[in-house]
Design a protein around this nucleic acid. Sequence first.
DNA 1: ACGAATTTGTGCGTATGTATT
DNA 2: CAATACATACGCACAAATTCG
Lengths: 254, 254
Amino acid sequence: MTETIEAPGSVTAMERGSGVALWRQIADRIRQGIAEGTFEEGGRLPPEIALAERFGVNRHTVRGAIAALVQEGVLRAEQGRGTFVQHAPRISYALGRYTRFSANLQGQVRETKGRLLASAVVPADSRTAGALGLDAGASVLRLDTLSEADGHPVSRATSWFDAIRFSGMEDAYAKTGSITAAFARCGIDDYMRRSTVVSARHADATVLADLSLSAGAIVLVTVAINEDPEGRAIQFSETLFAADRVELVVAEGL
Amino acid sequence: MTETIEAPGSVTAMERGSGVALWRQIADRIRQGIAEGTFEEGGRLPPEIALAERFGVNRHTVRGAIAALVQEGVLRAEQGRGTFVQHAPRISYALGRYTRFSANLQGQVRETKGRLLASAVVPADSRTAGALGLDAGASVLRLDTLSEADGHPVSRATSWFDAIRFSGMEDAYAKTGSITAAFARCGIDDYMRRSTVVSARHADATVLADLSLSAGAIVLVTVAINEDPEGRAIQFSETLFAADRVELVVAEGL
DNA sequence: ACGAATTTGTGCGTATGTATT
DNA sequence: CAATACATACGCACAAATTCG
């Protein structure tokens, strides 16, 4: 039963004809290697020939992967010197009873910004109505928002609110760039997280563009309900985080 | 500022020459459509020609996507009748202070099973040593395990334990298929979750094989520390969940 | 029972993208 | 940069199974 375990830097064959180009698979593995510490943050990547041998592909293919990662800002190539891993640590986003975007990133980034992408009053679908405790088909205000940290997009959220109770939300958010501040203008001075469900999937074309990601990128998805101090649901939201830039920390206490 | 919002079934152009094959992008969107309710669970998918038109591709390309999803068990195609969405709800896995695999899936699946893939005693790397409160290079027992629900693989975990304190763990786990039971045999009757960090990435070739996933599949990753009632770290683990089959629920209470 | 319409399954020729040498 | 091999995507045509009037 006790077998050998693969060495950390082991050679795993790339899959051809899998629908994902080899250069992209290799780009993913290099990105992953940086996240896991196989390739040192801020350090130099092994030379292209060594990487080609390790991944079992041609040097041209490795160059394609590196070019894509340079484009993304993950790597920086210097002629004659080598290819270097850009320093860009993952942001930790805490999930708990008290979850607020700006407060969450305090100390990790210099400044945060929220931007309103779109808003509309629409009839609630069954999922939204159920979450907010409204009748199916009731009018809800939908806000599409983008959150940035130090100028880099971090997450894209779609939130739904009772259109009657929170009629001024879209303007309040557009002015302040903060859900917490917008709630305050609607008379909600405090709120808590009732539930959070986490999943992951590939980003679709719209999200890729909004979050400045390249095709095939992954988003962490949180579906959450916020409630006021009286326990009434006030916000239902689906937030998409760029999985390359964010990790979610489950906060037990609070 | 208040703009129009895309209709739910809107046509978003697929990206050609992005390193990800069109059929795979479309497979992802169909899978996502099922998750979001655009395509009814248990219902019939629109005919291939309609899907081809909606996604702006050839019918062959749609067929490639459908073939991949049939292979995964997401769809079922019948000549002359149509293509149907297989009923396979996502498993909810709760993350909280009291997190145990079998108890977690109670009521959602009929039976759970744990299998030991490999074990080895290795020197601790800095991350593992830090998590377990050991000196760097101390001997740790590493277990690679696979957890199944109703015969389908759900997660693949790598766990590290103090090799001295938990010398019998590998046999205990191999016999019982349960970390909780294996701990009990080592004199640990109770334990709690100290911390959990969630991220997501593409599965590598080894994990694809272990979890019976197809290339390009996503895994939800939890990195966690368990501690005994005295607050000493006893287990450091990295668990990879098949993102298509599992969602993580953040449990506030408990 | 029959044929028309619908839907999935299959074949082939061509153009382009990807990867190696 | 060129030559080569394979994967991907398209367009057209037709076969096979099912449904329905």
